[in-house]
């Protein structure tokens, strides 16, 4: 008995881990976990964090041009929230042994990805509303189930992220409502933005289930709780009545209610486009990475100065202690 304490063998640890997952309990940073689970989570959480940071760019461009001070404040605060989401997601990744600077480097070198959606351009102020409605909406569909993800720090980060994104989505929808009550030009802007963002938003849920290589293991580990197609269908079902209420047309001729299935039928997104965008060939991939890289490189001297100052301070404190 005494010899065995604290010396669990790997199979013991693994069965304990599997049992924790099976009981729907959380895995915490100090718990043993299989390397594959750790690697998968770091990849997923880091990509989520990168998405928040790159995702600031399309909307961020409109803060300086927002057409009322109230909309300016709302958008400014939203984009700031995204930086905050990025921060606490990087922190969640760090609980798994990753390092923020290293993850940033991987992003900049193209070794880690971010959500394909942010490689599309935001062409008018209506895009701010449609991004908030569709993209935050799709993110909510993806992320609300992640509040029950098996990894504790990620699940808890998701609770906060989802609450804030739900707030952003409401504000965006309210902007669209206001614009639809406005001038003809405003209504045209909204419809144009809907036409451009609808299909890319459906692609945010990833490739179809029969072509999603990482999904099965992630579902088994309860890192992920629903399949891509299931979440996509849910998004469509929720969005259709909202589009009707708003008075916009979703650009899918196959979209109709299927009484028998209790869901909407809808067209298939062009997944070859998704593959192209993910491989770096979307409309704005180069531009988004260039902005991120420039900010990082131009900030290098600032980070170096902060480090040098901290080191000098510490040295001065040591000297004082000796004296």
């Amino acid at each position: 008995m005494t010899e065995a304490v604290g010396r669990d063998t790997e199979p013991d640890l693994e069965s304990h881990f599997e049992a924790t997952i099976a009981r729907d309990q959380r895995i915490e940073p100090r718990d043993w976990m299989p390397e594959g689970y750790r690697r998968t989570l770091i990849r997923q959480v880091a990509q989520h964090a990168h998405s928040e940071i790159i995702g600031m760019q399309p909307e961020g461009e409109w803060i300086t041009k927002a057409p009322s001070l109230r909309r300016k404040a709302i958008l400014f605060a939203k984009v700031q929230d995204e930086a905050g989401h990025g921060l606490y997601l990087y922190s969640a990744a760090e609980t798994l042994g990753a390092d923020r600077a290293d993850l940033t480097q991987r992003l900049l070198e193209g070794r880690q990805k971010y959500s394909s959606i942010f490689n599309y351009p935001a062409l008018s102020f209506a895009d701010v509303g449609v991004i908030g409605w569709f993209v935050d909406g799709a993110a909510i569909c993806n992320q609300v189930p992640l509040c029950r993800s098996s990894y504790g720090p990620y699940a808890r980060a998701m609770v906060r992220v989802c609450k804030e994104e739900s707030f952003h989505q409401r504000q965006a929808y309210e902007l669209l409502m206001t614009m639809m009550r406005g001038t003809d030009a405003q209504r045209e802007m909204v419809q144009d933005a809907v036409d451009r963002w609808w299909w890319p938003s459906l692609m945010m849920f990833g490739p179809p289930d029969d072509d999603s290589p990482n999904s099965a293991q992630s579902m088994a580990w309860k890192i992920k709780r629903h399949s891509n197609d299931e979440l996509r269908r849910r998004f469509v079902d929720m969005t259709v009545p909202q589009a009707a209420k708003l008075g916009v047309t979703l650009p899918d001729p196959e979209l109709r209610w299927n009484e028998e299935r209790g869901h909407h039928d809808f067209g298939t997104p062009d997944f070859s486009e998704l593959k192209e965008v993910i491989s770096g060939n979307g409309p704005c991939n180069a531009q988004r990475m260039e902005r991120r890289r420039t900010a990082h490189e131009e900030g290098a001297w600032v980070r170096a100065a902060a480090g040098a100052h901290a080191a000098k301070q510490a040295a001065r404190a040591r000297e004082e202690a000796v004296a």
Binding site: M56, I63, F76, L87, Y90, T294, A295, E298, G299, V302
Partner: peptide
């Protein structure tokens, strides 16, 4: 607001936006 997405570190991104707001 022009600093948004251009700050040297995420913490600065947050702080400058906060002050701007």
């Amino acid at each position: 607001a022009e600093w948004v997405t251009r700050a040297p570190e995420l913490e600065e991104e947050m702080a400058l936006a906060n002050i701007g707001l």
